[in-house]
Every structure is written in structure tokens, then in C-alpha cells.
Amino acid sequence: MAQLIKNRTATLDTWKTLEIVEDETPENVELPTGDVIFPLAVWQARKAEIISCHKRIGLLIDSNERIEDVADDLEYFVVIAVNFPKFVDGRGYSTAALLRQRYHYQGEVRAVGDVLHDQLFYMQRVGFDSYALKDGKDVVYALQKGFTTFGETYQAATDQPQPYFRRRA
């Protein structure tokens, strides 16, 4: 199970993610109880049912899915997990940036999938605040070094909406 970093500390993940295995479809998959992260397709197919039996709802959005498609539902989600099927697939960075900058989503934005030490700095900048670090990777070292690679940044981003040139003394 992936190791979770949240608010810059290692923490226990209390959420489970619903996986659709063969023979199952978003329409017929059994909805587990507890704190569950639902794939976008399941959410879209079973929204009313999920809302009726879950207090805390999570959403899983894959790199090829559009956050615009659930823009009106964001208030339902305690956590939105953005999947990185491969760490070189950079679409999730834009998804997180849109969630924070355009839709002003205030809940947890979690990076899941191929989440590695060397991408944590950029992920933090675009608006992620939790990270399911890939199995086998050093969570202690990630906490020690991964978020402080650079002490300053040029561009405006979620973590610092003012570009450096507007913050010069």
C-alpha cells in the first residue's frame, strides 16, 4: 500500500479506492462502505446512490479525464485523487492547478499512481497537498528533501499566486 504524505507528514491513509475489476462496470460494481474514493465514471453513473449512503466522498480522476465534467459536483468531495499513470504524464498538474485556481476547490488534492520523490516540489506548487508516494520509495527522505528543493520560484502558481517579479523588494 502506498505511503501517504499529507500536510508534509507521513500519515495513515484511511481512504480506500474503489477499483473496477473485470466483469464489473461503473453501473454494477458494488459500492463499499466507509471512506471511499470513487472513480469518475462510477460517480457519474451512481451519484445519487453514493450521496445517499456516504458522508465522506472521494473522487478519483485519471490523467485523461476532465475536471470540467464534474465542476458542479466539487462540493461533495472531501478528497480528489489525481492519478499519474506514469510520472512523465504531466496532465495531472494542470488538473490540480485548475481545481485550485479556477474552481477554488478547498478540499484535499491527492497525487496517486506513479508518484515519486523528484516530482513532489512541482506537485506542491500546482496545488497538491497530499501524496501517495509509490511503494518502495523512501518516505523519510521525501519529507526531508522533496518539498524544499528550491527556496524561491519565478512563476505564479497555486502555492504562490504572485510571481517573483511582483514580490521584489
Binding site: G90, Y93, A97, Y122, R125, V126, Y154, Q155, Y164
Partner: peptide
């Protein structure tokens, strides 16, 4: 140049 340097959203195009 400064804007492109370590742009967090566009490092994995």
C-alpha cells in the same frame, strides 16, 4: 527564460 525555468505545470509535456 525565467518563466520557463522550473515551471511546475509544464515540466512533463
Amino acid at each position: 527564460r525565467q518563466w520557463t525555468t522550473f515551471h511546475p505545470e509544464f515540466a512533463f509535456l
